[in-house]
Design a protein around this nucleic acid. Structure first.
Length: 497
RNA sequence: GGGCCGUUAGCUCAAUUGGCAGAGCAAGGGACUCUUAAUCCCUAGGUUGGAGGUUCGAUUCCUCCACGGCUCACCA
């Protein structure tokens, strides 16, 4: 047996060592995976409870605690040992003295490995150096860990492993855990804000017969019983508007969208979007509302309004700049009014700034491309870019007196598109013309069911989508969307290893 | 999908011009009753991502493949 063990690969040997201890525990009559171990408080709770307790106070009180957690490190000194117990968020030092423990507990301790879950009973005290610690009197195994964890000091650095085995990343990299805790605060902060403003949270179909509300390529699936092709939604927009028709004047949904496009530092095939619709609002009101919502959430999540972003900072302080798409181009590039004055001049300008496949782009798309190639990366502090071309905004109401420009804004922060909002088109005849225009240009089908809904009357409405993943990136200073999504899409690993 | 870069022990990282593949942590054995990246002594651990090629000799050079990172394209 031991000869065979020596032939094994290193990781197999490390596992064998742990399995041997597990067997030894069982021989001693100790169950390595007991059914339950109830505790009244966590390691973090105890740290908080005794944070201000003095050495002398603890010495006289000797408060008893019962705790469970994962063993993260051990510093042995012969007949005494120090160890760190973690609840995933915080650690507490354990102090184990052979003379203070029953024989089984001391023996069990010697059979532990880093990463094992244990339960301890003991009293709280401070060591000579002032470290809050538990003088352990009783110790139990709660779950044996049979594989070694990443190294304690450097944690897990390999980016692939961090994404594939997120549990190891969370365990060994506190910064990573902090990102996802902040993400949770952002999402709950948004819910609190919208609930407080009288919005109702709803859930609309993920599987749609016609993928609408955006123009990305959808993922396709099929329902067998109905023998029906379905698409994972690329946006919830057209369903949320049906709810506005139905009298839900303030609705929102925070959920996944799916787009079958490329993967990049700012795109994941499934991503989280907030969409909200507000009857009798328009895009100007939405700008005010968005400033308030995001500054509120940013402050809750980060504690301030000026946050680091790479080697720069983002200042979320209000008011945020608002400028039209045209003005943004003129202000942030060498281009002039002249360059935007005709199709020919725009094409020449597009050529100069490096836009590709110019001839395939509509006039409106060309203008947006010019913006993206010049001004967009420079929008670091929050900026509303308003008044988009009609032909790239088929669900948006035109500006009064100017049918070629629509009441639409996008919000840019840190060079990222974070939100997209419109004064919603609610004229069913005009909506039909826009759908037909899109269809003729190869951009999807006319959604008759949606038209049927708004023919029953949709009030004037403002609607907005906010990319939650990107907002989290901005508020946690992460340059890749993969680092703010727990399980980003990756290629399956070759099973051959 | 294209271009560039990367992949070395369980983890974090070294390795000169193509010349015996190393360290720290973790692991195993030993010492140690206030340490905290504990310390000290000893031991073991490698198909250098995979498959080919060049060479007396390949972690190193070449080709292909896998996965990842960055970037470009796609994403009204």
């Amino acid at each position: 047996m031991s000869e065979a063990t020596n032939q094994q690969q290193p990781i197999e040997q490390l596992i064998a060592n742990r399995l041997a201890k597990l067997d030894e525990l069982r021989r001693l009559g100790v169950e390595p995976y007991p059914t339950r171990y109830r505790v009244a408080e966590s390691v973090s709770d105890v740290r908080r409870r005794f944070a201000g307790a003095s050495t002398e106070g603890l010495e006289s009180d000797r408060p008893a605690v019962r705790l469970a957690g994962r063993l993260r490190s051990v510093r042995g000194h012969g007949k005494v040992s120090f160890a760190d117990l973690s609840d995933g968020a915080e650690q507490l030092q354990l102090y184990l003295r052979k003379s203070d423990l029953d024989e089984t507990s001391w023996k069990v301790f010697s059979l532990l490995d880093l990463g094992d879950f244990i339960g301890v009973e003991g009293t709280i005290f401070r060591t000579r150096t002032g470290e809050l610690s538990v003088a352990v009197s009783r110790l139990e195994v709660l779950a044996k860990t049979v594989r070694p964890l990443p190294e304690k000091y450097h944690g897990l650095a390999d980016r692939e492993a961090r994404a594939r085995q997120r549990y190891l990343d969370l365990l060994s990299n506190p910064e990573s855990r902090a990102i996802f805790e902040t993400r949770s605060r952002i999402v709950s902060g948004i819910r609190r804000f919208l609930d407080g403003a009288g919005f109702v949270e709803v859930e609309t179909p993920m599987m749609q017969p016609i993928p609408g509300g955006a123009s990305a390529r959808p993922f396709e699936t099929h329902h067998n019983t109905l023998d029906l092709d379905l698409y994972l939604r690329i946006a919830p927009e057209l369903y949320l508007k049906r709810l506005v028709v139905g009298g839900m004047e303030r609705v929102y949904e925070i959920n996944r969208n799916f787009r079958n496009e490329g993967i990049s530092t700012r795109h994941n095939p499934e991503f989280t979007m907030l969409e909200f619709y507000w009857a009798y609002a328009d895009y100007e009101l939405l700008m005010d509302f968005t400033e308030e919502m995001i500054t509120t959430v940013a402050e809750q999540a980060t504690g301030g309004l000026v946050v680091p972003w790479g080697d720069r900072t983002i200042d979320f302080s209000r008011p945020w700049r608002r400028l039209t798409l045209r003005d943004a181009i003129l202000e942030h590039s060498e281009l002039t009014e002249e360059d935007l004055s005709s199709r020919e001049r725009m094409e020449a300008a597009a050529e100069r700034v490096g836009v590709l496949r110019i001839s395939e782009r509509s006039d409106g798309k060309l203008l947006e491309e010019l913006y993206e190639m010049t001004a967009e990366p420079r929008m670091i502090d929050p900026t509303f870019i308003m008044d988009y071309p009609r032909d790239i905004s088929p669900l948006t109401k035109s500006k009064p007196g100017n049918p070629e420009v629509v009441e639409r804004f996008e919000l840019f922060i840190g060079g990222l598109e974070v939100a997209n909002a419109y004064t919603e088109l609610n004229d069913p005849a005009e909506q039909r013309r826009r759908f037909e225009e899109q269809a003729a240009a190869g951009g999807g089908v006319v959604d008759e069911d949606f038209l049927l809904a708004i023919e029953h009357g949709m009030p004037p409405t403002g609607g907005e989508g906010v990319g939650i993943d990107r907002l989290v990136m901005l508020l946690t200073n992460q340059q890749s969307i993969r680092d703010v999504i727990l399980f980003p899409q990756l290629r399956p690993r070759d099973s051959q290893g």
